[in-house]
Amino acid sequence: MLNSQLILNQSIIDDEWTFVALPSENEEIKKQAGKVVLFKLTGESSPSELQINETVIPQNSKIILPLSVYLKNREALKTRLKNNEIALWLATHETLHALITIEKDINIFPLIAIFVERFQDGRIFSLGNLLRTRYQFKNTLRAFGDVLQDQLFYLKRSGFDSYLIKTGKDVHEALKALQSFSDPYQGAVDIKEPVWKRRVRS
């Protein structure tokens, strides 16, 4: 049995991609209404120049780069991109705006990954949907971070086909959740038509 937490479609597979993180920054703890702020605002806090510049880009593997680091090094990465070695990741509070303004065809990336820091952050579903429907992304769409069994069905329906299950959680159990509902009501990314258009109902 594979020692992997990664699901692609219906199978557990080894990860051929190397994840490139941003160097961490000392972020101050923010509070709102007496509580620690757990979610970043959409469009807030892009990585700093320093973080972007200090990110080490591995040379000899297939890598998933932060969107900001890719945009900064776009020219230098052209050949590797052609060799299918460059993928992107962005977090749920980032918007797709920068990406789609600069890359007319996002299918040059074999994989785009969305980082969800907390599973309750439903922006990941809208981002998946937009990438698949509005921007016609056809390659692998991966969710990583706080990715748990009980959100997989929604992720699948929102266009994701790859899920890196959180460390410590049972990936085999998680796999089952992709089949939670056999015939969902509404049209979404995976099954486009709502049930009343798919079936004859009494």
Binding site: D121, G122, F153, Y154, R157, S158
Partner: peptide, 8 residues
């Protein structure tokens, strides 16, 4: 019901 985009 279980709208995939709007459940969180």
């Amino acid at each position: 019901t279980f709208h995939p985009e709007f459940s969180f």
